[in-house]
């Protein structure tokens, strides 16, 4: 009798648990022309980023945050959110990999989010007080806006099939002298199209230090190669998780970070940033209905 009762109790509890998790009501945001049209939607951004802060500019939305950008993608695919904030290059890569995903091409300070260049830009980080900042600033200043956008276009194309050669890139240094030593650069190698891991050395990918058979490529890698070459140094790419990037440069394990990192005020207290080497529009990725 006791056993029957307990089985019944468990069955009732299970049923009530199932009933309470009804499906979330989804919002179609595909027609949004400005960020004001997003009202009512559930939107997400990566935790501790400007993207999350920027969502505060939209009224009447439910804001979620996730630790990793692939979590955002999972949340979107599973229907937990209606869309998430990403940089336009990331959106291009993500949408190219999955035909059911689209993005709303907002333009910063126009139809999109209000943001300064520092908030949407990405810069190279060095140890506080490093004289490298001034040297690298000169090099970055020499990369024109046209070259940046042309290179990003090529990188996005490349990211769809990293192992297929696409030919000469928009940014390449003529300097082949590496007598000034080694430039050790840290990145995640997991943030397409800025930096990713691939299995071959195609398209000038750089071998990741200590990781046999793994190569890094992407916008950050090409910029790092250019900076190293202009400095007359050989480039070494070191892979670190996002949280380890700052300790890596502070402890001296690497010389600098080129990892799609924005120069926020909080990070500025830990490391020194150069000028930005790329600025992106913040867009919203969503899943096409039906």
């Amino acid at each position: 009798m006791k056993r029957v009762l307990s089985i019944l109790m468990i069955a009732v509890m299970l049923c009530s648990a199932l009933v309470s998790c009804s499906s979330r009501e989804k919002n179609d945001i595909s027609g949004a022309a400005t960020i004001a049209d997003l009202t009512g939607a559930t939107l997400a951004a990566q935790a501790d980023t400007f993207h999350l802060t920027a969502l505060g500019q939209v009224e009447g939305i439910t804001v979620m945050d996730y630790p990793d950008f692939t979590d955002l993608l999972n949340a979107l695919n599973s229907g937990a959110i209606d869309g998430y904030v990403a940089e336009e290059p990331t959106a291009l890569s993500v949408c190219a990999a999955d035909a059911t995903l689209k993005y709303l091409p907002f333009i910063n300070n126009d139809t999109g989010f209000t943001a300064t260049d520092a908030e949407t830009g990405i810069a190279v980080a060095f140890k506080t007080g490093s004289e490298m900042v001034a040297k690298v600033n000169t090099i970055i200043a020499g990369i024109t806006a046209e070259t940046r956008s042309e290179l990003m276009k090529q990188i996005v194309t490349m990211s769809e099939n990293p192992d297929t050669e696409i030919g000469a890139l928009a940014l390449a240094s003529a300097n082949t002298d590496t007598s000034n030593g080694t430039l050790k650069i840290a990145m995640e190698c997991a943030y397409k199209p800025f930096n990713w891991t691939q299995t071959t050395a195609a398209n000038g990918a750089v071998a990741i230090q200590g990781k046999d058979g793994m190569y890094a490529n992407g916008y950050d890698v090409q910029v790092a190669k250019y900076i190293a070459a202009e400095l007359g140094m050989a480039l070494e790419v070191h892979q670190y998780e996002w949280d380890s990037l700052l300790p890596a440069v502070q402890s001296g394990a690497v010389d600098g970070i080129i990892a799609g990192m924005s120069p926020t005020a909080e990070r500025e207290e830990q490391v020194d940033f150069t000028e930005c080497y790329y600025n992106s529009n913040l867009v919203v990725i969503y899943k096409a209905q039906g």
Binding site: T70, D71, L73, N74, N77, V94, A97, D98, P162, E188, C189, A190, Y191, K192, W196, T197, Q198, K211, M214, Q239, Y240, E241, D243, S244
Partner: peptide, 24 residues
């Protein structure tokens, strides 16, 4: 150990999912 970058199986999964965006 993937937090310090040891290339064990979970780390490899992280590298793969960042290339193909197919986390699940």
């Amino acid at each position: 150990l993937n937090v310090i970058g040891v290339a064990e199986l979970y780390y490899m999964a992280g590298a793969i999912k960042a290339i193909n965006f197919q986390t699940f």
